[in-house]
Design a binder for these strands. Structure first.
Lengths: 175, 175
DNA sequence: CAGCGGTTTCGGAAAGTATCGAAAGTCATG
DNA sequence: CATGACTTTCGATACTTTCCGAAACCGCTG
């Protein structure tokens, strides 16, 4: 069950989507399994259990468990408890805007802020130097830092906004 | 030469910057060496030869060559020929805004557009289906596709704009 | 057309990650 | 407090990516 070319067009499309999304994920620095689980939950209309995820993707329990937990850690997936069931179920946040904001926030925290810290520290370490080389170095890093800082603020501002306020503005600006 | 803790604060800062930037690069899906070479060229006030890059980073010729070529392919680094020298030199684009636009364009081409294509194809494959499940699937993918498409357009629009037009607008909006 | 400075390619080694599968842990319940 | 249902952890393994070093290549010049 749920193999390739099942004959059911919907099932086929799901499979294709989930697998290809997993493949694409790797180029964004997300592990294949994690991307696949996320895709799977995204297009599932009901919450899935660890076992269902395992079955659907052919992944091991450990792998499924780890990646589900990580997705919960990113805030992209919620644990849901089903009345009368002991087993835990998982569902993905479905709203695309919310997903975007969550990812933006997390990447900001995990990747942009460390970069900023690095830049600041390198700048601090060369603050007093007066040689031409030092000045050039300082200037380049300053520009970089300023840009990253701006990007950071933009992401922060955007992801703190209401979708209904931002999207229309963007669409208008695009035109 | 050019080891850790050389005693020269500028050299130390450069080393720190280059190495740490390399480390950070991996979490953005860029290989360590490539990120390091880019960082190195970014803060170098003169173009560097393959051999200088090798020496500075302790990388092999093959590795240096491959990554330099790749950086040229991304449009982040230019080959420069020095009058009377046979050897090729490399210099990085220094302007941060230009760098941003280049990266945005490339990632768009390499990563966003394939994702869009995937989404479109999955949508096409389920167009006629009328079951509730199919509709839900279709709706979810449509929302995702729309969002990605918008993001794509935004990147395109921004990276085609003049820095002088965009940055002030952004700064004003941020306030 | 041989020698030389320089670049590119390539097979194999090494490093780094993701994944598995089994064992250990947790927790409500009878 | 023992049991069974489920979750988490963890060492070993498989796979992917990166990197090295040497060999092949290229084009100029004498």
């Amino acid at each position: 069950m749920s193999d390739d070319a099942s004959g059911d067009p919907l099932e086929d499309a799901r499979q294709t989507f989930v697998r290809s999304w997993g493949a694409l994920g790797t180029s964004w620095g997300v592990s294949r399994t994690m991307a696949m689980i996320h895709a799977l939950l995204l297009v599932s209309d009901v919450p899935l259990s660890t076992d269902e995820v395992m079955a659907e993707l052919g992944a091991s329990r450990g792998n499924a468990n780890t990646n589900l937990r990580e997705l919960v850690g990113w805030g992209l997936v919620r644990r849901v408890i089903v009345e009368g069931e002991r087993r835990e179920y998982f569902e993905a946040e479905k709203d695309v805007w919310t997903i975007f904001c969550t990812i933006a926030r997390e990447r900001k925290r995990r990747e942009i802020e460390p970069a900023l810290a690095l830049l600041e520290s390198c700048l601090a370490g060369t603050k007093g130097l007066r040689s031409a080389k030092a000045k050039a170095f300082h200037k380049q890093l300053t520009e970089l830092a300023q840009f990253v800082q701006t990007a950071n603020s933009v992401l922060e501002r955007i992801s703190a906004s209401e979708q209904s306020k931002v999207i229309p503005a963007i669409l208008k600006w695009l035109k």
